[in-house]
């Protein structure tokens, strides 16, 4: 299982054994990582699972589609490496991936 490290805004890090095939959001929730709300349960419809994917792994997480782009566009803290973690499907290629969590979800 790929190991993924999620780092909260305050610097607290959480390394999880992620389950491939599930979303990064679901993996984070299953491992009780704080900082992801996921109010809509993974429908790319609320924007509360926002995260920042560190550069070396951006390619492995795939492209941002139009709907995700629209939701990310509403985030005041949107960055180039912004993603909705419900739209990232975990794969073996993400072993070692580092993801930063935002100061807030809204």
């Amino acid at each position: 299982m790929p190991k993924i490290t999620l780092i909260e805004f305050n610097g607290q890090d959480h390394t999880i054994d992620a389950e491939p095939g599930k979303s990064l959001m679901q993996n984070a929730i299953d491992n009780m990582v704080p900082g992801i709300d996921a109010d809509c349960g993974g429908a790319c419809a609320c924007g509360t699972c926002h995260c920042f994917v560190d550069e070396p792994w951006r390619e492995s997480t795939g492209d941002v589609d139009a709907m995700e782009e629209a939701m990310l566009g509403m985030r005041p803290d949107r960055a180039d490496n912004s993603r909705l973690s419900c739209q990232i499907q975990v794969s073996e290629a993400m072993d070692g991936m580092v993801v930063h969590l935002p100061e807030f979800q809204m």
Binding site: A45, M71, G73
Partner: peptide, 18 residues
Amino acid sequence: ARKHVSFGFGVHRCMGNR
């Protein structure tokens, strides 16, 4: 408890929810 529809979803989701 956060899983409710009161704030709506998509690009029009409630701006002042927090």
